[in-house]
Amino acid sequence: MNNTTANPPYIEFDRVGLRYGRGEEVLSDISFSLPTGSFNVITGPSGAGKTSLLKLLYLHMRPSRGLISLFGDDVSLLDRSAIPSLKRRMGVVLQDFSLINHLSVFDNVGLPLRVIGKNVQTYQDDLISLLKWVGLSERIHARPSTLSGGEKQRAAIARAIIGKPDILIADEPTGNIDPVMGARLFRLFTELNRLGTTIIIATHDKDLIPDEAHVFDLNAGTLTKERSS
């Protein structure tokens, strides 16, 4: 655990293990805690278990063993009905972007607000401002299939942060874009972090990791190193 900050831990993993079906553990004895407002990067080679670790973080899966605490709540004790509200406190950017193809960029990005019953009139201006901020103001009506990789990535990020989440989780956000766009994205993450969002990014692109980040090395399902960049 990195206790160099005075902020209380937002996320704690205690000897967490994960296996798919009856197979071997893909994650073993993962323990760490992430303080509020921290910038965290999980690195490691392909197949190290980064995506699986993130899936546990954003409650896509439950661990086979160990304890996960989110915002002070033990995840294993959570009722199903409590999961959506926890998920709304997390913005997630997946490797494949997961944009809905028949919806415009506007509708994709507005989805987190729509599902909590907000009227489009109440968030339209904020959404347009956000799209300007991520550089998609000219692509508001576009369908995801017409966007470039970088544009899709930024649309996915906009969707992840439109609800002002406490945590932003991104899985290989630079995997499908060129280095220039990658650097730009990381600047975006740094800016979000500066605004108070806890950032957790899984990447194998170590060159882009900002200086202030806490870096976790994951290898063959085991956390091997934890350091400040």
């Binding site: 009905s81 959506p84 987190p112 909590i116 609800g163």
Partner: peptide, 16 residues
């Protein structure tokens, strides 16, 4: 399925 997964991911509850 993508729509279902995304709705779940952005915090839609089951009833929604």
């Amino acid at each position: 399925r993508l729509v279902v997964d995304v709705l779940h991911q952005v915090g839609a509850n089951m009833n929604y």
